[in-house]
Design a protein around this nucleic acid. Structure first.
Length: 594
RNA sequence: GGGGCGGUAGCUCAAUUGGUCAGAGUCCUGGACUGUCGAUCCAGUGGUUGCGGGUUCGAGUCCCGUCCGCCUCGCCA
């Protein structure tokens, strides 16, 4: 085999006159007839033009060169030289070419079903790209994403190593835990009828590592949650998981901010600077969401007090509800930009989040117009003042319970920003969201549920509220948000068994069940667990941000579809009946013979 | 589980009210061309219109079911 001496993106005019051997895939071929054949040869590093002068090479090379087709795998030896024709500005190697003298066809390809061509990559059905993933991944764009992903993990390991973290593996076959997402489960052969679960996160194990005296832990770890995927969510995903001993909230925040700063500096050469901290309540009040995108305005305003003075049924009905509110978003210059049809579209949009719609008014030189203008009369001046309205503005209202109205308007705010192109593409707005409530009351289950997870501790000074008023108890949780995307979330943990037991009880887990489900954690806490806290970064979403895609499948080498299939390997698939028998499993209903 | 969009040649798409609508580009095959670079030019191969029913003289087109992909609500401590 011809041994390569360089990569395809490597050669420059400095190397003119040298002999070089390259190996890779035929990206394109341009057959000029009896005289010349051009090949663009591609590997993961780049592309180099090969030229064969057919009158100047062996007959065998001529024959093989003429037969080359896209995606054939070849090695070529030849002379590096400056191009006779014009340089190709679009190639890093565009100044030079290789005058091919020896050619070895390493693998002649069948006609490829798709081509790794950036020109029409966006057009190829994703189904085909997933099915022939190994071809799609040859694209420079995909190679770049894989490299960025690797860089993120490399930088993480370096940074956290510098800060005293140890990478420690935790098991994939663990015990199922209540709460949280649906578990993937794995049968135990040795214990018929017993099951392992795949970890939704290594949460408990990393806490136990702190109890084990490991002090600072890092793991780049796969997590599994058997829930329906989304554009930014897969059942199988990766966390950069971290935990620290003897720390308080701000210690964790400080170390993790340092990582974010280092990462964005090294990957994008961006200084993100100090990361502001925002309480959860402020995030919800101003942005209607716990991961605000602060790259644009359109902030929410509570106008419940004004709305109470109108005769508008939608407002009064909402305010009559428990925790009923009326909130508004002012869209500067929206009066002209948005037709009735457009605003009706936004009404449909918010209905998907359970809101009844978004009443609107336009504020013009003639005062309030269209929509619910006639109801706004009694509060005309105060509304103008409250929202700082200017002529040409449009106002969206949302009236419902606080939860519903706020959610609807928060989602609408993000959509408006996209539709109106208010987002500065070059901005990287980080913020910490803190002071989350410990619990949320779930009427359906008639009990409290943990907003973060059951191991999250209360903020110092909040402990008494666990008994007196759980709903108002503030937790020591924190989320790192970038451009409206939650890229990390964590908390200071409960490290005392009594406190953990108390929280379990609040969550409807009595002592007996706690002992049965979480006994190993409680015992670890009893036998000396240090104060601890940590965080987990969502690696997939982090890479999505860094490479600018909103498709999580782009940042995973072998992703699954929305129905959990791998179209390339065709998983999941049937197993041999004997395998089931060994595991003492019978499937109900039985598999239909195909 | 619900809602929306889509599935026609290897790939990307077109086909008016149901009526020569089985079509284009590209890939591929063959040919021409000595400086191309998304090469160009000429010719050609290529189809279970996702699958199964139904309506009709006639279905890519209409109806029912089903499978697959994407987006989304629920779900995701």
């Amino acid at each position: 085999m011809l041994k390569r001496t360089h990569m395809c993106g490597e050669l420059r005019s400095d190397q003119s006159g040298q002999t070089a051997t390259l190996a890779g895939w035929v990206n394109t071929y341009r057959d000029q007839g009896k005289g010349l054949i051009f090949i663009d040869l591609r590997d993961r590093d780049g592309m180099t033009q090969i030229v064969f002068d057919l009158e100047d090479v062996d007959e065998q090379v001529v024959t093989q060169a003429r037969a080359l087709r896209r995606e054939d795998v070849i090695a070529v030896k030849g002379l590096v030289r400056k191009r006779e024709g014009k340089a190709n500005q679009r190639l890093a190697t565009g100044e030079i070419e290789i005058m091919g003298t020896a050619l070895e066809v390493l693998n002649k390809t069948e006609t490829p079903p798709i081509l790794p061509d950036e020109h029409d990559a966006e057009k190829i059905a994703e189904e085909k790209r997933l099915q022939y993933r190994y071809i799609d991944l040859r694209r420079p764009r995909m190679q770049g994403i894989l490299r960025t992903r690797y860089n993120v993990t490399r930088i993480a390991r370096d940074y956290f190593d510098d800060n005293g973290f140890l990478e420690i593996e935790t098991p994939c076959l663990i015990k199922t835990t209540p709460e949280g997402a649906r578990d993937f489960i794995v049968p135990s052969r040795s214990y018929p009828g017993q099951w392992y679960a795949l970890p939704q996160s290594p949460q408990i194990f990393k806490q136990i590592l702190m109890a084990a005296g490991c002090d600072r832990y890092l793991q780049i770890v796969r997590c599994f949650r058997d829930e329906d995927p989304r554009a930014d969510r897969q059942a199988e995903f990766t966390q950069i998981d971290l935990e620290m001993s003897f720390v308080e909230r701000d210690d964790v925040i400080s170390v993790m901010a340092g990582f974010a700063q280092t990462l964005f500096k090294q990957v994008l050469n961006i200084e993100i600077g100090d990361i502001p901290i925002m309480p959860y309540k402020e995030a919800m009040d101003r942005f209607g969401i716990d991961r605000p995108d602060t790259r644009f305005g359109l902030e929410l305003q509570d106008i419940s007090d004004l709305a109470a003075k109108t005769d508008f049924r939608v407002f009064s009905d909402a305010l009559a509800k428990e925790n009923g509110v009326v909130k508004a978003i002012r869209v500067p210059g929206g009066a002209e930009k948005m037709s009735r049809k457009v605003t009706d579209g936004y009404s449909e949009f918010v209905k998907t989040f359970g809101a009844g719609g978004v009443p609107t008014v336009k504020y013009t030189e003639n005062g309030y117009e269209t929509g619910i203008a006639k109801f706004v009369g009694p509060i005309a001046d105060k509304l103008k003042e409250r929202l700082a309205l200017e002529v040409g503005d449009l106002v969206f209202f949302s009236a419902d319970t606080n939860v519903v109205a706020t959610r609807a308007l928060g989602e609408l705010r993000n959509k408006l920003a996209r539709d109106l192109e208010l987002i500065d593409k070059d901005a990287w707005n980080f913020l910490w969201v803190v002071d989350f409530p410990m619990f949320e009351f779930d009427p359906a289950r008639d009990r409290w549920i943990a907003l973060h997870h059951p191991f999250t501790g209360p903020m110092p000074g909040e402990e008494d509220k666990l008994e007196s008023d759980p709903g108002s108890c503030i937790s020591a949780a924190y989320d790192l948000v970038c451009n409206g995307s939650e890229i990390a979330g964590g908390s200071i943990r409960i490290h005392q068994p009594q406190m953990q037991q108390k929280v379990f009880n609040l969550l409807g887990i009595d002592d007996e069940e706690a002992e049965q489900k979480f006994g190993f954690l409680l015992r670890a806490l009893r036998y000396g667990a240090p104060p601890m806290g940590g965080i987990a970064f969502g690696l997939d979403r982090l890479v999505m941000l860094l490479v600018g895609t909103n498709n999580i499948r782009d940042v995973i080498a072998f992703p699954k579809t929305q129905t959990g299939q791998d179209l390339m390997s065709e998983a999941p698939g049937p197993v041999d009946p004997q395998q089931l028998e060994e595991l003492n499993i019978s499937v109900n209903p039985p598999e239909e013979p195909v």
